[in-house]
């Protein structure tokens, strides 16, 4: 797992928007989606269109987005089960007795979950880890939390590489995996990984202290976003809010 997250390094209008604007925009958009009753199908179509427009402006390749959608899989399974297990009035579809509320609930989870994931992909694919941290800092996330996040992001690739090397070492000594008997081998390796990670954490702290660290991380020094940038970044989210409000007012 790379320390860059899902970042797609191209230059686009969306990439250039300051991270704090994008985080707020994502949050507002998802909130609008989540608060829309599931039966307002047209609203979800509009949300989808807004997102697709944003993906196009951000120049994101389709495979990146679709591959990442896999995180949703377990919930798709859950959603597909709903029509069969939910109670209440039922409808006949192709000879199957499906619960009406179950069908709607499945749609609800699928539509909102998918839109949420795509919106999140839009953020993570257009924002580098450093920008993201600077954005969270601008949004007044407690500095200790920003510092922990920063170290986590920095060392994600280092720890993952350690893990990867340990797996190679295990497999090159004839380990094939799958058998419960080997659980101990994995777990022992994970234990060693913790000791390594922890000791690295200690050394990093020593390195910080030896360069004068006294408990406060320097600010990442990102300049604030301009009003124009806020307006530009929030365009789609505000449109989504308008859709959500309309859906509420006109009902179905």
């Amino acid at each position: 797992m790379s320390g860059d997250g899902l970042l797609v390094a191209v230059d686009s209008k969306v990439h250039r928007i300051p991270a704090q604007v994008k985080i707020v925009a994502l949050f507002v958009f998802v909130l609008a989606v989540v608060s829309t009753p599931a039966a307002n199908f047209w609203a979800f179509a509009l949300y989808g269109a807004l997102l697709v427009a944003a993906l196009v402006v951000a120049k994101l390749p389709v495979p990146v987005v679709s591959r990442r959608l896999a995180v949703e899989t377990p919930f798709i399974v859950f959603a597909l089960l709903l029509p069969f297990v939910a109670t209440g009035p039922t409808v006949d579809v192709l000879g199957l007795q499906l619960s009406q509320s179950g069908v709607l609930g499945a749609w609800n989870i699928l539509a909102k979950g998918t839109l949420g994931v795509i919106a999140a992909i839009l953020l993570s694919a257009t924002t580098g880890p450093r920008e993201l941290l600077a954005g969270l800092e601008r949004l007044r996330l407690p500095s200790t939390l920003v510092a922990i996040l920063s170290f986590m992001v920095r060392y994600l690739s280092v720890v993952s590489d350690d893990l990867h090397r340990m797996r190679i070492a295990r497999e090159s000594r004839g380990y094939v995996g799958g058998r419960a008997g080997h659980l101990k081998a994995i777990a022992g390796g994970v234990g060693a990984l913790f000791v390594r990670s922890f000791e690295r954490g200690e050394r990093v702290h020593l390195a910080m202290q030896s360069r004068g660290y006294t408990g406060r991380m320097p600010l990442l020094g990102e300049v604030g976003a301009t009003r124009a940038q806020w307006m530009e970044g929030l365009t789609i989210s505000l449109a989504a809010v308008a859709v959500a409000v309309t859906a509420r007012v006109v009902g179905l």
Binding site: P129, R130, L133, S150, F151, V153, R154, Y155, V158, R200, R203, V204, L206, A207, M208, L220
Partner: peptide, 8 residues
């Protein structure tokens, strides 16, 4: 890697 802990 112990010494370089900041994002850039």
């Amino acid at each position: 890697d112990d010494q370089l802990f900041m994002p850039t």
